[in-house]
Structures are given as C-alpha cells and as structure tokens.
Amino acid sequence: MIPGLAIILCFQLAGEVATRALGLPVPGPVLGMILMVAACAMRPRLTTRIRPVAEGLLANLSLFFVPAGVGVVAHLALIREQGVALAVAIAVSTVLAIAIGALVFQWVSRLTGTTDPNAVKSGKGAR
C-alpha cells in the first residue's frame, strides 16, 4: 500500500514541479493526475499497483469534506452577511454552465453532422 501511495504522490509532485517550472495555468495535482493517467495507459501494470490505494482513498472521500464543513462553520457570520450574493452567484453560474454545455453540444453536433442525441450512445450519427 505504501508503494502505491508513494507513486500517486510522486505524480502529484511531478505535476507541481512542471506547473511551477513552466508557469502553466493548471493546478499541479491536475497535471499530475493527467500524467498518471497517461502512465497507466502506457503501463497497465502501474494501474494494478495503485488500485488498492486509489480505492481506499475513494472509499474515504467523504473525510475530505470535513475541512470544508469546518470552514463553513468558521465563517458563518460572513456567509450570513453575504448569503444572498452567494446564492445568486451559485444559481447564475449553474444556469450559465448548463446553457453553455447545451450550446457546445449543439455546436459539436452540427460540426459532426449528428442530429440524433441517442447516436452518442451507439456511436452512429444520423446524417
């Protein structure tokens, strides 16, 4: 289990180093995860080494929300003060994200000539 955790942390470190060295606008852990996925695709044996650790982390993922909950409680006065603005910002950003996703889907379907939304599942496009 420790070697698997060391591998995951090494990929995170590699992502952090690459992001800072190259000045990339991507968080280091995200770049590390991309590197890890690429490495797992090239070397499937690596997947078997990190699988137990990854499954353990995913099984206990809810523990990572405890600090966020503590942060909410610690800043409860600020949330009360700015609650309406936060709610509006969350609602507007959610609606915008859904609308932009729909527009991108329409653009891609026009670009590929696919008009049947069920064609994505079957891999066939109605042309």
Rank of each mutant, 00 (worst) to 15 (best):
G101P: 04
M1I: 07
P3S: 09
G125L: 00
M36D: 03
P29K: 02
V104A: 13
F105W: 00
L103G: 07
V73P: 13
M33V: 00
L58Q: 12
I8K: 06
M42C: 13
R127M: 03
L31E: 07
G71H: 09
A89F: 10
G4S: 01
E55A: 15
V92W: 09
K124A: 07
V26M: 12
I8C: 05
I2G: 14
G32C: 04
V66L: 09
I8E: 10
S109C: 14
A18D: 08
I90N: 08
R20N: 08
C10D: 15
L111R: 02
P52Q: 08
G113W: 02
G71S: 15
A99I: 10
L9N: 07
P67Y: 05
L61Q: 05
R49A: 00
I98N: 01
T94D: 15
Q12T: 02
T114R: 03
I90M: 13
A59C: 04
V84W: 02
Q106C: 02
A77W: 11
A77Q: 00
L22F: 05
C10Q: 09
A54Y: 12
E16M: 09
N118I: 07
L31H: 00
I79C: 15
V53T: 08
A77R: 01
V104K: 07
L103C: 11
P27L: 14
P29V: 05
P67F: 01
V95Q: 09
V120P: 09
V26E: 01
V53M: 10
G56P: 10
A99P: 08
V17M: 06
M1E: 09
L24D: 12
T114F: 15
T47S: 07
L5Y: 06
L35F: 13
Q106H: 07
G32D: 00
A14T: 01
A74L: 02
R43Y: 03
E16K: 00
V30G: 11
A126L: 14
A21T: 05
R49H: 10
P25Y: 06
P44K: 06
N60V: 05
R45F: 07
I34G: 10
R80V: 03
A119V: 03
S109K: 11
L22E: 14
L9T: 12
G56R: 15
G123N: 04
A39G: 01
L111I: 08
L63Y: 04
T19W: 11
G101R: 01
V104F: 13
M36R: 11
P25M: 08
A126G: 12
K124R: 03
G56F: 04
P44C: 03
A38C: 04
P52V: 08
M1Q: 14
S109P: 04
P67K: 05
L76M: 09
K121P: 05
V88R: 08
A89C: 09
S122D: 14
G83A: 04
A39L: 03
G125N: 10
L13A: 06
R110A: 03
I79E: 05
F105L: 08
K121Y: 13
P44T: 05
V108N: 13
V88G: 12
G83M: 15
R43V: 06
M36Q: 14
L58C: 13
